[in-house]
Design a protein around this nucleic acid. Structure first.
Lengths: 218, 218
DNA sequence: CCTGCTCTCTACCAGATGGTAAGGGAAGCG
DNA sequence: CGCTTCCCTTACCATCTGGTAGAGAGCAGG
């Protein structure tokens, strides 16, 4: 457990000046993702970091805003990663389908790198969850953009016709579903979970290909 | 909102003698499934039913045991439903595969009939969730039985060889995944969700068939 | 009538929770 | 040096939490 400064040495004030915020965000992400929002207490969170709850509140004002900040940071990372993949494959001679595949692979790579992200996503996509709105405002522009792009490609005949909205949501919930799958497997004592996750990825890619790639059979 | 007895009429004591327990279980199932265990307060739960928290505690002793009771009832229903399907198809000239398909369909039917069940399942299959143990003790015999049966059938050559444990867990997490999918779709304002759920069912059945049915191609 | 059982209530509590108020040490700056 | 700003602290609080204690209403049986 990473702590800030050294407790009990009489040292005070400046601990690890400047990165307390980030450390709190890390710990909060982990706690929200595993114990849930309601199950996370600011006191425990602070204790785990060797600081006081009021320090957290100093940086984030309220528990609710802390959750928002965590969501913001994660969404930011996601968007940045996707932008990167998109930029790398742009202009390149790749087909639409190959670019879609690249994005899917990137998302799965991110999820496997940082399983806590999936935990948060799962927690936050619960009905009535605080932060659900926040996630939506982050994801909506992404979704809208993808939908517009797909619809353009369909109109141009480079992509098979289908319901873009439903397809995107289906892909999204597949990813969220991976979160539960990992937890189920770990609960059953099976792990590491690379193979089943790769299988889900394969299913999703096949499904997308069937729906989108005009060169794919049926 | 169903209330017990009539509040404020001076009436007291016997309200709807005998079924308070069941009403509390219903409300608790809904609340645990949507708001989560930590997010559910006994006071709110009681208020929603027009009774006092102490009445709930009289019947269930503690919040924790209330959750256990909810889980017990749901698991009981599930087991009963599966037993029924199994009994109906026994002796009948059905192949193994057809019986498996019947069970899958029954589970999906149950889940669509009572979406709250999925909510609970989702809540309770979270790591560190109280009640996770309870679910496991209910599901483990079912799983073990299915695994033994599958292994017998495989040995007899009536079923394609595969990892029974992993296959069962995969099927299980697909069902849990449906819970998240429904929530995601509702959050996005899409609904009713019959079509995507049916699609997941189709995917699961295809996957199972590919893995199990010796008469299926590849 | 009395007794005992079942069920629900009022009254109360200790502990945890998120949040407010205010102070103090360190560093930058004039 | 004094002043301000940043960061983190101690002290405190109102509220909500799950849970305990005990009383009272209704009913059944002797």
């Amino acid at each position: 457990m990473a702590t800030i400064g050294e407790r009990g040495t009489g040292e005070r004030g400046t601990g690890a000046r400047g990165n307390t915020r980030e450390l709190v965000l890390d710990a909060a992400l982990a706690s929200f993702g595993t114990t849930g929002y309601d199950g996370t207490s600011l006191d425990d969170l602070a204790a785990g970091l060797g600081i006081r709850k009021q320090t957290i509140l100093y940086h984030f004002v309220s528990k609710r805003r802390l959750l928002d900040s965590v969501v913001d940071r994660c969404a930011g990372e996601l968007v940045k990663a996707l932008e990167r993949v998109l930029a790398e494959s742009r202009g390149d001679g790749r087909s639409d389908w190959e670019r879609v595949e690249g994005m899917v692979r990137e998302v799965f790579r991110l999820a496997l790198d940082q399983p806590v992200l999936l935990g948060l996503l799962r927690e936050v996509s619960r009905p009535n969850s605080p932060g659900a709105d926040r996630v939506r405002t982050h994801l909506e522009p992404l979704m809208a953009r993808a939908r517009r792009w797909m619809e353009d490609e369909m109109a141009a005949g480079r992509m098979r016709r289908t319901d873009a909205q439903l397809l995107l949501l289906s892909a999204y919930s597949t990813v969220v579903g991976v979160a539960t799958e990992i937890e189920v497997l770990r609960a059953a004592g099976v792990g590491p979970t690379l193979r089943p996750v790769a299988q889900r990825r394969g299913e999703l890619l096949r499904f997308l290909r069937r729906s989108l790639d005009p060169a794919a059979g049926s």
